[in-house]
């Protein structure tokens, strides 16, 4: 049987936070997409989606990252990233960032449309719910704000999680409420950010699950920072790590 992704050239959009802080996440995605038959490419020309700049009001710097993004990924059939927020930023912002730059705009629009979160690529393009993972633990899912309201992943992450062997999914109350990260918000409004993260971490710890997962390491960095400080037992883990797991019971 031909693997579902064979013949597809997939650009791996690592994202800046993962490249620097969580390299194992894009590594696992590269291996998973390879197993599914894709030709995975990762250009060193990539930097970032640009939202750190754009969302803080520095549009010129945001535009420069769009140029780097186009440089890195033009020619790919799809660009796939393990971050709903970064993917959402590409799709939502690259078009208007380049609107006054006709030499970039067309390519930015085309590339944005081909940029997908890992969960979208698996379910919508490959039609795969079950990636053959096994993770015999209890897990609660934090649906990041951008996954819900910008990238609009819907229930895709949950469909993938439900197909993981041995995994017990525990509902998180008020799952759609923000964890307080907000990019530079966490630096510009630290007290509010910490108060929000503390309240989210409490709700997560109260589920009694062993792991909290999300489609974004940035949210997990924020929530996990509080959980680690409080020496909570529950541990953050990226969705891609669960989907790559072969751990048996």
């Amino acid at each position: 049987m031909t693997p579902p992704a064979s013949g597809l050239k997939v650009g791996l959009f690592a994202t800046c936070v993962n490249d620097l802080m969580f390299p194992e996440t894009p590594r696992m995605v590269a291996q998973m997409l390879g197993r599914l038959g894709a030709e995975v490419v990762s250009s060193p020309k990539q930097t970032c989606c640009g939202q750190m700049f754009t969302n803080t009001g520095y549009v010129k710097q945001g535009l420069q990252t769009v140029e780097a993004y186009i440089d890195a990924f033009s020619g790919c059939d799809y660009v796939v990233g393990p971050s709903a927020s970064c993917v959402g930023s590409v799709r939502d912002q690259h078009s208007w960032l380049t609107k006054d730059h006709p030499n970039l705009h067309q390519e930015a629009v085309e590339l944005s449309a081909k940029t997908l979160d890992l969960t979208e690529f698996l379910i919508d393009v490959l039609n795969v719910d079950d990636v053959g993972a096994s993770f015999p633990h209890s897990v609660t899912y934090h649906s990041s704000c951008h996954s819900l309201r910008i990238t609009k992943l819907g229930d895709r992450p949950l469909r993938l999680l439900r197909a993981v062997k041995g995994l017990t999914l525990i509902d998180l109350p008020d799952a759609d409420r923000c964890c307080g990260f907000g990019g530079t918000f966490s630096m510009k409004n630290p007290d509010v950010s910490i108060a929000m993260a503390t309240s989210k971490a409490k709700a997560i710890a109260n589920t009694g699950a062993q792991f909290v997962t999300a489609p974004d390491n940035a949210c997990l960095l924020n929530i996990g920072g509080i959980l680690h400080r409080q020496q909570a037992r529950i541990r953050p883990i990226h969705l891609a790590a669960i989907l790559s797991s072969k751990e048996s019971a």
Binding site: R27, S42, I194, A197, G225
Partner: peptide, 30 residues
């Protein structure tokens, strides 16, 4: 876990911050 210089201290006043990876993703890929 705190006692970090600006700007990290804004973060670490209440949140532990993982130390950056020893090998970046791009270095691994290369």
């Amino acid at each position: 876990k705190g006692h970090t210089p600006w700007p990290a201290k804004v973060w670490t006043s209440a949140r532990d911050l993982p130390v950056p990876a020893k090998q970046s993703f791009r270095a691994w890929w290369k």
